[in-house]
Write a protein that binds this DNA or RNA. Structure first.
Lengths: 352, 352
DNA sequence: TTGTAAGCGTTATCAC
DNA sequence: GTGATAACGCTTACAA
């Protein structure tokens, strides 16, 4: 088979074949049937069906300055949380005729900015961003210029963005109340480096507040900052925390997110400490797997782990709606939506 | 602040400001510095730096018929397997100057075809597809026409595609050998509906082969087809399988993928059956979390589950390279790459 | 070394 | 109802 030049069939070809002008074909393509006779419409329809014609979205974008592309910028697309978020966003964009372009920034502010520039060059109509940087002049400029931007999950403090996120402080207070109610007297939070990340920062702040409310003097000491891909770092921090437990009380650990929660579980298991008797354990369930199967990981692991459920799928879907609204109405006032989180207590914190 | 029309700055504006023609600016943009004087280059550089100019990728694509966009079509982007695959692909595309456009097809062949049409309209330079359909005339036509398409993970049998996948049969045989070596005498495989899915089909076929090799008469009876989001369906099938265990032997269950493996674990746990003594349990680890943390779920759950590791991140990365190669060289001969899987035995199958 | 002008595949403004 | 024709923002012969 010779190498076919395989020339693309264009609106001109269709016009010629149908014996009309390309203006008429264009009208047909845009559904303006009232601007043509029934037979013209019919003729074009036939020719198109016959010819495998596919209008060039590129040419259309160039002319109309709209692309029906939306950029979805994700800090770490491989995390189950983000994957669910992406799925939620994808489903609403798809239904509304937008095609989402996902990019992963590897949690790097520089890559985030570069990705966004590239998306803008491709004429995306708007941006849904799970930002890598809590402080973000570039994104603020962009939103300020009137370009549709909505934030999802992670916040940028110093500007009033459209955003959908969750109340990340309340569940930590809830957890605290539950733990003290069960009789845990020495409570720590296990976290990765958190200062650049609004979600972790919120949770740690809530932890500090709750600790002080309880009368803890130096709650900072109970913030265990670990390197998540270094098992020794996790078990070392936990070991030191547990060693500091006052006589007569039982320690408990809150994971700042699902990954640290699991890492803590793993470390405790390796140390041979029993949950909930020797240590309590709880934290967020960021993974939203209920759709996938009839079980949920916090039920399966270690006989049940107390968690509160964040809702990434819903977060993504809501944010997508918000972006569409913003694209259609650039002047609407900014919105802030909070998805509530549900606490489910399980065996891992049941001291009594 | 009045509603700024916010006119886009174009190559013409730059040309005017720099006092050169737009051809020269274009040359500058494409790095053809040898075609202009040092001072011209300098002048353009300054003007651009000053003006926030961003060339329109759309216009460029229209002219050049290349977009630097690649379509990445994924059956279920929310599964940890796909998420890792996407991450792997993303990292190589990003590094090579391509911007990947991910779409989720919800495992529907119709949505897959629609998504691909839409991607083609946007002039993507190539397609990386994790297909929803084992038989797929549309994709075959497309690849046949010379358009760059590479498959990832899932196969389409009746055509010679570029593909990167894993050898999905061998690990099942390995598992079988391991189980019988440990003394398990009644082996079943728990799977979702599998006939449209090449990976599940391969695994079930390998299971049937291995069973026959062992002298099992009706191995089909040991293929437990379950509905994954219905706990009763899973536990019912497992219960019936276990009830059929011949006297004096111990049953074992292989999960066809990680989700069914986990579901089986959950069902066994609910039934109060002890692993590995009363039932053996094993299957694939499709999730590739080693990058995320220092632990891996098969170690954490139930004291350790025997798995073989598929490598989604690597799969995605390899496939991306293969697609880039295909885009650059449409006439190269087709390639087929198999990523090997590693078996790790753990407590869940240690009868002896 | 630089400029002119045609053209990529559409849409939109006029006419007729 | 329909058709010319001028954009949209670039790239690229071909000239100069």
């Amino acid at each position: 088979m010779p190498q076919q030049p395989n020339k693309r069939v264009t609106i001109n070809d269709i016009a010629n074949m149908a014996g009309v002008s390309k203006a008429t074909v264009s009208r047909y393509l845009n559904g303006k049937y009232n601007l043509m006779s029934a037979e013209t419409r019919q003729r074009i329809e036939t020719v198109i069906a016959f010819s495998h014609y596919r209008p060039s979205a590129t040419a259309r974008s160039l002319k109309t300055q709209r692309s029906n592309l939306v950029g979805v910028v994700i800090a770490d697309i491989a995390s189950p949380f983000s994957a669910a978020l992406v799925k939620g966003a994808d489903s609403v964009f798809g239904g509304e005729g937008y095609i989402p372009v996902f990019v992963d920034t590897d949690d790097s502010p520089d890559r985030e900015e570069a990705s966004i520039r590239s998306l803008l060059a491709h004429q995306v109509d708007g941006l849904l961003v799970n930002t890598a940087a809590m402080h973000n002049p570039y994104l603020i400029d962009l939103a300020n210029s009137g370009f549709p931007v909505v934030l999802c999950d992670r916040e940028i403090r110093d500007f009033n963005f459209d955003i959908v996120t969750a109340d990340y402080k309340k569940p930590i207070h809830d957890l605290f109340d539950h733990l003290t109610g069960q009789g845990y007297g020495h409570i720590g939070i296990c976290t990765q480096e958190y200062r650049r990340n609004s979600v972790r920062t919120d949770r740690v702040d809530a932890f500090l507040d709750a600790s002080r409310r309880l009368g803890v003097k130096r709650p900072e000491e109970n913030v265990l900052v670990v390197k998540i891909n270094d098992a020794k770092s996790v078990s070392g921090a936990i070991r030191r925390f547990i060693d500091r437990t006052p006589k007569g009380t039982v320690p408990a650990i809150i994971g700042v997110n699902t990954v640290t929660l699991m890492s803590s579980y793993y470390a405790l298991w390796k140390m041979g400490l029993s949950i909930p008797g020797e240590v309590g354990l709880c934290g967020p369930d960021d993974w939203d797997w209920s759709r996938h199967a009839a079980w949920d990981w916090p039920e399966v692991i270690g006989g049940g782990i107390t968690t509160f459920k964040t809702k990434p799928t819903q977060l993504g879907a809501q944010a997508a709606w918000m972006l569409i609204r913003r694209i259609n109405n650039p002047n609407a006032s900014k919105q802030r939506v909070l998805i509530p989180a549900e606490l489910t207590t399980r065996a891992s914190t049941m001291l009594s």
